[in-house]
Amino acid sequence: MKWTAFIVFLHIATFCNAQEKIIILEKLYEGKIIDSNVTSKLILYPNYIPYYYSFDVKYPLSSQTMVKNANDFLKRKGHFNENGYLTFKFMIDNEGQMNFVKYSQINQNYEPKVFDNDFVKNLCGFLKTLKNWEKAQYGKNKTPISYVSYISFKIEDGKVINISP
């Protein structure tokens, strides 16, 4: 019964053009826009924000491997003396593509700070190398669904020392 109600609810999805999607996405989750690209496979749902955890879909790599890959990528971009958390939030569309990336930045005490712009771009560059996002599905028919996900990089002395989630 709960699933039926949920599926009916989801079926009132918003099919709209890119500009209309951007207007909705600007308000949907917090952060500064770094990539406003949206695809036709991104479906939005009025009154419902599906998060990665509702479908058990984190990026299919361990945190240790992601940390190593991020640092290998950053090594080629020069050294930055940065500390804190740089968090990217985005939507994964029905085909597993990343859409509409925003970022937020805080220091180690969870207070707002501003990272070097080039460092942000470099880390976003690494984020874009992640191409194997899980496709979320729901219900018996395994209907595809777009969802919000995030990756937060914990930075110490310009290096990624950990990744959430």
Binding site: D56, P60, L61, S62, S63, Q64, P165
Partner: peptide, 14 residues
């Protein structure tokens, strides 16, 4: 685990 990886947690890749 739904929300965050635990330290040293592995995936199929590793």
């Amino acid at each position: 685990l739904l929300y965050a990886n635990y330290p040293y947690q592995i995936s199929l890749f590793e």
